[in-house]
Simulated scan of single mutants.
Amino acid sequence: MRIDIEDLYVAYAGRTVVAGAHLIAAEGEITGLVGPNGSGKSTLLRTVYRHLRPSAGRVLLAGTDLRELTPVRSARHVAALPQERGSDFELTVREVVAMGRTPYKRAFEGEGAADREVVARALADVGMEAQAGRRFTDLSGGERQRVLLARAFAQDTDVLVLDEPTNHLDVRHQVELLALLRARRRTVLMSLHDLNAAASVCDRLHVLHAGAVVASGRPREVLTPELMAEVFGVRAALVDHPLTGDPLIAFDHREPAAATPLPGAARR
Rank of each mutant, 00 (worst) to 15 (best):
A114W: 13
E226T: 14
L223C: 01
R182D: 00
G217L: 01
A98W: 04
H168C: 01
V147Y: 13
V159N: 09
T166E: 04
Q174L: 04
D203I: 02
E117F: 02
A210R: 15
A215P: 11
F153P: 11
L195I: 14
R135Y: 14
R121A: 15
A210Q: 15
V97M: 09
D125C: 04
L205A: 06
T102A: 15
V213R: 04
L139A: 13
R218F: 03
A199R: 02
A122I: 06
R185W: 02
P225E: 09
G142D: 12
E164W: 08
L208R: 10
L208S: 06
C202S: 12
L123G: 11
F136D: 10
V118C: 08
A130G: 08
G141Y: 11
S140F: 13
V147T: 11
F136K: 11
F108A: 05
H193K: 04
H206W: 11
D115S: 11
R135K: 08
F136R: 04
R220S: 07
E143C: 06
V96R: 06
K105W: 09
T166K: 00
E111K: 02
D203L: 03
R218Q: 11
Y104F: 15
P219N: 03
D138N: 12
R106W: 09
A212F: 01
D163E: 07
E95L: 05
D170Q: 00
T224Q: 03
E111N: 01
R184V: 03
R94I: 13
A152C: 11
A150R: 12
R184G: 00
A197P: 00
E109W: 05
A183M: 02
E226R: 15
Q155D: 14
T166H: 03
R106Q: 11
R134G: 06
V119A: 09
V97F: 13
N196W: 05
R94N: 04
V119H: 14
L227A: 05
H209R: 14
R185M: 01
E226S: 12
G110S: 13
A120D: 15
R106M: 01
Q145E: 05
P219L: 08
Q145P: 10
A130R: 15
V96T: 07
V159D: 06
E129T: 07
V119T: 12
S140P: 12
Q174E: 05
R172I: 01
E129P: 01
T137L: 13
D170F: 02
G141F: 12
E164R: 09
P103R: 12
G100D: 12
L149E: 09
R186C: 06
H173D: 01
G127C: 10
L139Q: 13
V214R: 14
E129C: 01
G110D: 10
P165R: 07
G211V: 08
S191V: 10
T224P: 04
F136I: 05
V126N: 07
L192D: 08
